[in-house]
């Protein structure tokens, strides 16, 4: 039996989780305040994922950049590929919150969406 300690990152509470594993399989999770903590622990030890936030350039907008995010979490190992994939994107203004900036980033099935309204200049 193996024991691992994690900090839940679901919310600012940051619950300290204790996970017991057997043969790489999660047996118990304790220390969590809510069910999301247990789900996080299981995922973190098998297939850790993160939401990625970044920026892309905007053309003709009132601002030079628009912030973006992955619409949901993607595998941790793909974070840098994801950032690279949006490196050369330049969105024409206006940009609206929720607008898909790049569909299915790096084959994750997750879209990159805008998180900021950028009206056209002038």
């Amino acid at each position: 039996m193996e024991e691992k300690n994690l900090i839940c990152i679901n919310c600012p509470l940051g619950c300290p989780l204790t996970v017991t594993l057997e043969g790489g399989e999660v047996k118990t999770v304790s220390g969590n305040t809510c069910p999301r903590g247990e789900a996080y622990a299981r995922k973190e030890l098998t297939n850790p994922t993160r939401i990625v936030t970044s920026t892309v350039k905007v053309k003709g907008g009132s601002l030079a950049m628009a912030s973006v995010k992955t619409a949901s979490d993607i595998p941790k190992g793909k974070i840098f590929d994801c950032v690279k994939a949006i490196q050369d994107i330049e969105l024409p203004a206006p940009v609206t919150i929720g607008q898909v900036v790049l569909a299915d980033v790096c084959g994750t099935g997750v879209d990159i969406v805008a998180t900021k309204n950028v009206p056209a200049k002038g």
Binding site: S54, S67, K116, N117
Partner: peptide, 25 residues
């Protein structure tokens, strides 16, 4: 909030995780 483009805002207020500009929006 406009420059806080990371997520983690709004869990209490909107019961979902938003970025700073979305929360402000």
């Amino acid at each position: 909030l406009n420059q806080c483009i990371h997520n983690g805002f709004g869990l209490h207020t909107f019961k979902e995780e938003l970025t700073g500009p979305e929360y402000a929006g």
